Computed example of a mutant assay.
Amino acid sequence: MKSGPDIARIASLIGDPARGNVLTALMSGKALTATELANEAGVMPQTVSSHLSRLEAGKLIVSRKSGRHKYYTLADDEVAMVLETLMGFAAHVGHLRTRTGPKEVALRKARVCYNHLAGDMGVQMYQSMTAGGFLMKNDGTLNLTEEGRWFLAAMNLDVSTLPKSRAPMCRECLDWSERKSHLAGQLGRALLSHFLECGWACRVSDSRIIEFTASGERKFSKLFG
Rank of each mutant, 00 (worst) to 15 (best):
C198T: 14
D158W: 01
I210C: 02
L26I: 06
D120E: 14
G67M: 05
E172W: 05
M169Q: 08
L223N: 03
E104F: 02
L52E: 02
A11N: 11
A118T: 05
H69D: 14
Q127R: 12
P163S: 06
A106I: 04
S207D: 01
D139N: 15
C202I: 10
Y71L: 10
S207T: 07
V93I: 14
A18I: 03
Y71R: 03
E211H: 13
G4H: 07
V204H: 08
K137N: 10
A18H: 06
S12E: 14
M81E: 15
Q127T: 03
H116V: 00
N138Q: 12
L86E: 06
R64S: 13
R179Q: 14
K219G: 01
S215P: 02
S50A: 13
W150C: 11
S128T: 07
A41I: 08
A80K: 04
I10Y: 10
N143K: 09
I10G: 06
L152N: 05
S53R: 15
D77Q: 13
L223F: 04
H95C: 11
G133N: 05
K137A: 14
Y72M: 01
K109Q: 10
C173T: 13
R171C: 09
H51D: 07
F134Q: 08
C113L: 12
A106F: 09
T100E: 12
N39E: 14
M169C: 05
A106N: 10
M87S: 12
V48G: 06
I210Y: 01
P5A: 12
W150V: 12
G4L: 05
L162D: 06
L142T: 06
G88H: 01
N115F: 10
Q46H: 09
A75G: 03
S193E: 15
C202R: 15
L196N: 01
L196R: 08
A80N: 03
A131C: 02
G188A: 02
S207P: 01
L13R: 12
T161I: 05
N138S: 11
E197N: 14
V105G: 08
T145L: 06
V43D: 00
R149K: 15
E178Q: 13
V112H: 04
S207L: 07
A38K: 05
V82P: 00
K222W: 11
G15E: 04
D76E: 10
S3Y: 13
M169R: 01
K164L: 11
K2E: 15
M44W: 10
L83W: 03
A154K: 13
F151V: 08
K2G: 15
R203P: 04
S205I: 03
Y71D: 02
K30R: 15
E36V: 00
G225N: 05
G94F: 04
Q124A: 13
M169E: 09
H69F: 12
D158Y: 06
G42E: 04
R189F: 05
T85K: 12
A34W: 07
T141W: 09
G42H: 00
R64I: 07
R68A: 13
L107M: 08
T161K: 13
E147G: 14
K222S: 11
F195Q: 00
A57T: 14
N115I: 02
C173R: 13
A190T: 08
S160T: 14
M121F: 12
G101H: 02
H51E: 01
S66Y: 13
M1E: 11
A118C: 15
T33I: 03
E146S: 12
R166V: 11
F212H: 07
E56Y: 09
T47L: 09
